[in-house]
Amino acid sequence: MLDALTLVTGVAALLLAAWCGWAAHRDQPTKDWHFIGMAVVSVLALVQLVIGVVALARGEKPAQGTTIFVAYLLGAFACVPAAGLMSLTERTRWGSVTVAASGVVLAVLQVRLYDIWGG
């Protein structure tokens, strides 16, 4: 369950990165549709956080330690919303670049989460 969600979130994050990268390429700021995309990715990360915590509560143990696992879950959840807020204050292509960067960072975090959970 957690592995599948990690994969989906990672792919969604990369799609978001490509989408916002495209907006930046066309010299556009983030628009409403981009924010809906960010919301979708953020919800995926939130679901992942909840499922991860539930798995921990049921006594499952991440291969590389509980503290690191929770820290990465929180980081993954905060990643895209933080960049989204920053892109609200930066209404140029650079706001789009920032969100694109957050998508890439989130994808990297998902790879790490996969390792931390499964070894």
């Binding site: 960049a83 920053m86 204050t89 140029t92 650079w94 706001g95 670049v97 957050s102």
Partner: peptide, 8 residues
Amino acid sequence: GPGMLLVW
């Protein structure tokens, strides 16, 4: 501009 990306 680019400073926003750097801060992030």
